[in-house]
Design a protein around this nucleic acid. Structure first.
Length: 677
RNA sequence: GCGGGUGUAGCUCAGUGGUAGAGCAUCACGUUGCCAACGUGAUGGUCGUGGGUUCGAGUCCCAUCACCCGCUCCA
């Protein structure tokens, strides 16, 4: 039985040293994770398997490891800075994003005042008030008549809790502040009130902006597809996708020239490091197109909503290839076009996942729709894995990035190309990332196919795929019969609930879905006929079906099923041997027999230089096997009394649990062959 | 941001206003000839944090923090 929830995986990871919550001593830090001894091995194995496949086994790919921090100009010209820095709202009609602060600043002052009124008049004590209190303190006497300033200050003090405005005078106070806003709120030269517009935008980002946008009539223009209909707008969000830091000591305020001059971003993708080095690699290794550059490394995105364990984190690891090819107009008869290269990479990457043990039923290719394509992409196909609980999730994207990136970073790009790629001329760059093609006898900027996989996501997918709970021994007949005897009572009880649910004629008011209950009953009845093999399925049914645990017969039955299941079950990670964190565990059958212990330790020593090998004698042999099963160790060797007589040991295979005796001098061949080493 | 949930031993979790608990794990001693053996004993806790109610709070109330799930969102 495969993993039913991410929770199971997370527990196993924590318990056995794969992945720990980050900064745990201080209560944790949202969705940052530390990789423990086994997780490090597994992740390294994933990366190594990838590297071996796309670099070693090919004749046309080189490796690279570029710096995480790069010039800010890289991100300006790649398009990442402009797209992600500002609060955005999306028009649901056109699908286009709009900068909220820009929208606001285009509005007439009464609109903003109205908006402000909607904000201030809202009876609320949440933290948004405090934001406004802070904003209001930016209003200085020089910018307002004294009385209005005083009124604004009074409101500010009230928001911060240090002052109580007489309710009967409240409107007068608020109107005073609105008058202030009407005077200068949208004057760009007025710094203080410039902050106000930003603050309103910020407020809208955090609050329920839809109604406010509408009530204030902020978006009443028709020319860009904007409407005042709240349903046509998504909530505003600040897309600070890139983490900001600075090189050198900087104390300047954010947004000033001094601050911008030293600003750096933690890279949100590894790709740009490859583009920056395209010419270096091409020249220094005398590469001819087509060829690719592969890189594994950390990337950082300040995601709005991280989650699902290590699936979406703000710090993650990518495995990316940029594969450089001829632009379509230079492709000759018999050569592959960009479309063909793209298809080929999709196929090859798909097969990589299958080759490492992912079932084709849980891996699919999904074409990205036109409106979800990134700004650089002509076509992207995602490889998605069917995770437990949250379903299909992207583990790799294979994009046709055309010549967008290399053109964006090049000077002197012909105007026609700039227009085609919707790029501005690049006056910052001193380089032109073009290539002289000796066959075509022409210079061109190459096109790029980009297979980009998530290393940490891959690790999660492989863990989910490998996780199995299975029966290892026949449960006692009597207890199985007892469970069989009790299931009709559960079904009867559930059917009663189903009838109750059906009595409520309005489906939206039903507490339970009758169809779901019916499905539960059918599944349970069917599973009961397959006992004892179906023991774990029944356990899962009773545990997972919503509301099932409230049924009286289930309360009686579930503990019995759970106990029996636990007693007769093992957890096993059926990881591909290439990925397994530990390849081999060596045990002495008896820990207090010196000769046996000695031989076991010698075998461990023999292999530890080739791959991760462990020695363990801290429990009975059965328990030692189970421990290794749970962390996916494909082979265990047990040294026993017969070893002392004939130099053979037993090799126990994880998935089948079968053992065979092998002479010790054949062990090396046996394992190295199986690990393709 | 909204809604829901959780927070007690290293892990998984019980806990009815009245002495802080179990299983697993760890350590010690004994026992142990192949699939989670057993016995005896031991270590381990400011019950997320701060207030309050109470003679007495893990338990009730308020606040706060963190994490998880859902919604929104995710070039």
């Amino acid at each position: 039985m495969p993993a039913r929830s991410i929770e199971q995986i997370r527990n196993l990871c924590k318990r056995r040293g794969f992945v720990f919550p980050g900064s745990a001593a201080y209560g944790g830090l949202g969705s940052f994770w530390d990789y423990g001894p086994l997780g490090t091995e597994l992740l390294n194995n994933v990366k190594r398997a990838w590297w071996r496949d796309v670099v070693y086994k090919r004749d046309d790919v080189e490796g690279l490891d570029a710096a995480i921090l790069m010039s800010r100009k890289v991100w300006q010209h790649s398009g990442h800075e402009g797209t992600f820095q500002d609060p955005l709202v999306h028009s649901k009609k056109t699908g286009k994003p709009y900068r909220l602060d820009k929208l606001l600043s285009e509005q007439q002052q009464p609109v903003v005042a109205k908006l402000f009124q909607a904000v201030v008049m809202q009876p609320s004590n949440d933290s948004r008030w405090q934001d406004f209190a802070r904003v209001l303190t930016y209003v200085t006497p020089e910018e307002a008549k004294d009385d209005e300033y005083a009124l604004a200050q009074a409101i500010a003090r009230e928001q911060s809790g240090s002052y109580q405005i007489d309710p009967s005078n409240r409107d007068a106070y608020v109107n005073a502040v609105i008058r202030l806003l009407n005077k200068s709120a949208l004057q760009p030269e007025c710094v203080a009130f410039g902050v106000t517009v930003d603050a309103i935008a910020k407020y809208l980002v955090r609050g329920s902006s839809q109604n406010l946008l509408t009530s204030a009539g902020v978006v009443e223009r028709g020319d860009t597809g904007q409407t005042a209909n709240a349903a046509d707008w998504t909530e505003a969000r600040r897309f600070n996708l890139m983490f900001v830091s600075h090189t050198g000591p900087v104390e300047a305020a954010a947004g000033t020239a001094e601050e911008l001059a030293s600003r750096v971003y933690l890279r949100p993708e590894t790709a740009q490091g490859i583009f920056m080095n395209f010419a270096h690699v091409q020249r220094s290794l005398a590469r001819k197109i087509p060829f690719g550059i592969a890189q594994v490394g950390k990337a950082f995105r300040n995601e709005i909503t991280p989650g699902n364990f290590i699936f979406r984190t703000r710090e993650f690891e990518q495995m990316e290839i940029e594969f450089f090819i001829k632009p379509p107009q230079f492709v000759r008869e018999g050569e592959k076009t960009d479309v063909q290269w793209h298809d080929e990479w999709i196929k090859q990457r798909y097969e990589w996942w299958l080759g490492l043990g992912v079932d084709g039923q849980r891996l699919r290719q999904r074409e990205q729709a036109a409106d979800e394509l990134a700004h650089y992409s002509k076509r992207t196909v995602d490889l998605e894995y069917l995770f437990p609980e949250f379903g299909w999730g992207e583990v790799e994207g294979i994009a046709n990035r055309t010549d967008y990136d290399l053109s964006a970073h090049s000077r002197d790009v012909p105007e026609a190309d700039l227009k085609r790629l919707k790029l501005e001329p690049n006056s910052d760059s001193v380089e032109k990332f073009d290539y002289f093609d000796p066959d075509a006898k022409a210079r061109y900027i190459p096109w790029v196919i980009e297979p980009s996989a998530g290393a940490t996501r891959a690790m999660l997918a492989f863990l989910c795929e490998a996780y199995h709970e299975e029966l290892t021994k026949e449960p006692p007949q009597a207890e199985v019969e007892a469970i069989k005897a009790e299931t009709p009572a559960v079904i009867k009880n559930a059917q009663k609930k189903q009838k109750d649910a059906e009595k409520e004629s309005d489906p939206s008011k039903r507490k339970r879905d009758p169809a779901a209950i019916a499905a539960f009953c059918t599944a349970l009845e069917e599973a009961a006929t397959r006992l004892p093999q179906s023991l774990l399925e029944i356990n899962a049914l009773l545990e997972d079906h919503p509301g099932a645990q409230n049924l009286e017969p289930v309360k009686k039955l579930l503990p019995k099923v759970g106990k029996l299941a636990e007693d007769c079950t093992r957890v096993v990670l059926r990881l591909h041997p290439t990925l397994a964190p530990i390849k081999l565990a060596v045990f002495p059958l008896k820990a207090n027999k010196a000769e046996i212990v000695d031989i076991a330790k010698r075998i461990k020593h023999q292999f530890q230089g080739f791959f991760r090998t462990v020695y363990d004698d801290s429990a009975g042999i059965g328990r030692l096997y189970r421990r290794q099963d749970e962390i996916g160790t494909p082979w265990c060797i047990t040294v026993d009394f017969q070893t002392l007589e004939d130099n053979t040991v037993t090799v126990r295979e994880r998935d089948s649990m079968q053992q065979q005796r092998l002479p010790m001098d054949q062990l090396k061949d046996y394992f190295l062959t199986r690990l393709h080493m």
